[in-house]
């Protein structure tokens, strides 16, 4: 099902520089996808993905009710989950930082250092984790 070109595409579409993305990603994934029986597993999950959109209202209700501090770091050139899906988090969450990064679906590949820095700053300054630093 998942030919290696398609697996590779998930890593490379929308990136600034393809040379920054290690082939280790898709070679590793493909090896595991090509195991006998894995194709059927992935098809079942593609099928069951239909269970998710009907739950979106419940998740959004959770955001509104519990207001977890939220950091959104979204590869804005992703066409699987487009940036239009990042913006509405701001409707439901008050304590939110949103960063639309100039990269693709697997944003950690190209922007991992930046994302690590943003996580570190966000969690240590805006969140209860600060109590750990103070201790």
């Amino acid at each position: 099902m998942e030919r290696i070109e398609a697996t590779r595409w998930q890593y490379t579409h929308g990136v600034k520089n393809e040379n920054a993305i290690s082939p280790d990603n898709w070679v590793h994934d493909q090896l595991l996808l090509d195991r006998p029986g894995n194709n059927e597993i992935q098809l079942q999950l593609f099928y069951d993905y239909k269970s998710n959109p009907p739950l979106y209202p419940q998740w959004q209700e959770y955001f509104r009710k519990y207001q977890p501090p939220t950091l959104v770091v979204w590869g804005r050139n992703d066409i699987i989950f487009t940036k239009e899906g990042a913006i509405p988090y701001q409707r439901d969450l008050k304590n939110i930082q949103l960063h639309l990064l100039n990269t693709g679906h697997f944003a950690l590949e190209e922007e991992g250092e930046l994302i690590a820095e943003l996580i570190s700053r966000f969690l240590l300054t805006r969140h209860k984790a600060a109590r750990w630093i103070e201790a």
Partner: peptide, 24 residues
Amino acid sequence: AIKHPEKVESLIVQNGNAYDEGLG
């Protein structure tokens, strides 16, 4: 998170969808 909201201290969302708008 819905099952155990008390356990979740914060969210880091990276191309993780929860809105119809994200399904292009």
